[in-house]
Amino acid sequence: MEDAMKNLTRYLTGAALCAVCASAPAPAFAQASPAGAEAAEEDEARGDIARATQLYREGNEAFKQKRWSDAELKYLKAWGLVRSFDIAANLGEVQLQLNKPRSAATFLSFALRTAPPSTKPEQLARIRHFLGEAKAQVGTLRVRAMNVAEVEVYLDGERVPEEAARHELYLEPGEHVLLMRHAGYEDAVLRVITGPGLTETIAHRLKPKAEKAPGAAGAPAANDAPPAKLPETTAAPREARSWVPVIALGAASAVGLGLGVGFTVAANAASADGDRQQAMLRQAGGGCVDVPAEYSHLCSGLRDSASRVETRTRTATVAYVAAGALAIGAVTYALWPRERTTTSRGVHASAELSPDRAGIVVRGVW
């Protein structure tokens, strides 16, 4: 870690001073800036380096203690001041620990591309190792235009930085919308589906815009037309099937089955009463013809039991049939192909009992 700190300080100092030199105007083309302005710029660059170095050290301490969230915060603040391969390498490794493989791959690939020649082989091997782990969890995309040198790249509506667009893009597994743009050419909008560990190269030929005749004064030129809008990435959701009828029909079927079982039990009880009364009549010496007066009530009870058995058996049969029909209706509705409709849906089920019939009435629209 100490070697990394030394490399970081040397790398940041050199990068910052080169940036200051590059920003100074050339004396052959512009008036030289005052010496005070150059000194101020150099002091500001050195101040950023000092703050980034301190944040980097604090991030390393959190890293050693496996306080990944604290380390990420320190490294991100340092990255905001100065973009160094050391910061990117440690930040990518921490984000991999925080289950952020896409961002981790972005930082680790930057670190690998920008590592200076003095970087130790074991440090480069470590970066490659963690980059491989990150890429195994995301999709990798390379974008090239076949007929132009550079293109603007948009991914899911957000512009990709030019430096990243020239190398590799890392995507969460799933479907994404890719847009390629270049002045004088029509926008190319492509849908990309990627998965963990997959690498895809898209080489697309852009189509030149059709030349149009000059319009009236003040009319926009052909190349000044507003950029094409990205298509919606999410299709309008289909109307979900209503499960209320299935639940209602299933509940009504269960009620019908319960009624059938109840009437079956009642019919069996009435049949048992009839059998008992018939046995008593046999013991009295006959049937209900010329029966002694003391057994006449048994004949009346026997006829009543027979009537109850018949009524309850018929009612149980109707309930079983209704329960089966309702269950078939619920299954049919659940599996039947449907079309969209704006008709309001509703279902109502009610039991209907009378002296001469029994059943379940279902009314509904679905």
Score class of each variant (00 low, 15 high):
Phe263Met: 03
Gly174Trp: 06
Val331Gly: 13
Ser109Cys: 00
Pro117Tyr: 02
Glu58Ile: 00
Thr343Ser: 14
Leu112Gly: 04
Pro27Asp: 12
Gly274Glu: 13
Asp70Leu: 04
Pro196Lys: 15
Ala37Val: 14
Glu163Ile: 05
Asp3Arg: 15
Ala22Phe: 04
Phe110Asp: 11
Leu353Glu: 14
Pro220His: 10
Val160Pro: 07
Ser84Pro: 04
Leu171Glu: 03
Arg205Lys: 15
Lys212Ile: 01
Gly218Met: 03
Val94Asp: 10
Glu352Tyr: 05
Ala213Thr: 13
Phe107Val: 00
Pro227Arg: 15
Pro337Met: 08
Leu335Ile: 10
Pro34Gln: 09
Pro173Gly: 07
Ala89Pro: 02
Phe63Pro: 03
Lys6Asp: 15
Phe110Met: 08
Glu339Met: 06
Asp70Trp: 01
Thr332Asn: 14
Glu163Pro: 00
Ser23Phe: 02
Ala32Ser: 07
Arg144Tyr: 01
Gly256Gln: 14
Tyr333Ala: 01
Phe110Glu: 11
Cys288Trp: 08
Ala203Thr: 11
Asn90Cys: 07
Glu172His: 11
Gln278Arg: 10
Gln278Phe: 04
Arg144Asp: 01
Ala203Phe: 01
Pro196Ile: 09
Tyr75Cys: 02
Gly14Ile: 01
Pro121Phe: 06
Pro117Gln: 12
Ala334Met: 07
His182Met: 03
Glu152Leu: 07
Leu12Asp: 13
Ala252Ser: 13
Val143Ile: 10
Ser103Pro: 01
Val331Glu: 11
Pro245Gly: 09
Pro292Ile: 03
Met1Ala: 12
Ala267Cys: 02
Arg238Phe: 10
Val361Ser: 14
Val362Tyr: 03
Lys74Leu: 03
Val362Met: 09
Arg357Glu: 09
Asn90Trp: 06
Arg113Phe: 02
Glu42Leu: 12
His348Ser: 13
Val289Gly: 05
Tyr320Gln: 07
Glu310Met: 04
Pro231Val: 05
Ala266Glu: 14
